[in-house]
């Protein structure tokens, strides 16, 4: 009886996890630029969640902006580092170099916000690179429209580069 019960639980868990695994496999196997929409839902972080986390005093994740330098200079999440536009090979190299020495369990949040989520050229490649490098605790900040609307426009703290 007990083995059967465990087996049913396992099957149930596998069924629940299937969509996420399928998403992840699809994202990893895609060639070329990776759309942000291919990032598994379970690895997205909503702006309100990150804002709450930053205000809670809890240990901060490493926050990396992986888009435009100009937009970063204009306004960015406090303590976020600029990591280069991940749509370009140079940008990916900068991101790779920044995280190369970090443990794979390091909590990392990546964000861009240059364009609407489904048009962002940077967030997908950045997520894929970190995934391929073996990082297991990466979240992508879900910015539906742009950083202005979905972060600054909501009154969340932002800062300009000096």
């Amino acid at each position: 009886m007990r083995p059967n019960h465990l087996s049913r639980r396992q099957v149930l868990l596998q069924l629940l996890a299937a969509p996420f695994l399928a998403d992840a496999l699809h994202a990893q196997s895609s060639a070329g630029p990776l759309s942000a929409t291919a990032i598994p839902h379970g690895q997205l972080l909503q702006p309100e969640e990150l804002n709450r986390e930053l205000q809670s005093g809890a240990p901060r994740p490493l926050i990396l902006q992986v888009g435009s330098r100009i937009l970063y200079d204009e306004d960015h999440i406090p303590a976020a580092e600029y990591a280069g536009p991940a749509a370009s090979p140079d940008g990916l190299n900068k991101l790779r170099a920044r995280v190369a020495s970090l443990p794979h369990r390091q909590a990392i949040v990546i964000y861009c916000g240059c364009c609407p989520w489904d048009r962002c050229p940077n967030i997908g490649p950045a997520w894929r690179l970190l995934h391929q490098m073996g990082f297991t605790n990466v979240k992508a900040l879900y910015i539906a429209d742009n950083f202005g609307t979905d972060w600054v426009g909501r009154g969340y703290r932002a800062q300009k580069s000096e």
Binding site: I70, D73, D75, G148, S161
Partner: peptide
């Protein structure tokens, strides 16, 4: 070519 100052001058260009 623009820059962050020009974006700020126009009320924040934080996405294009």
């Amino acid at each position: 070519m623009g820059d962050a100052r020009l974006g700020e001058l126009y009320g924040g260009v934080l996405g294009v």
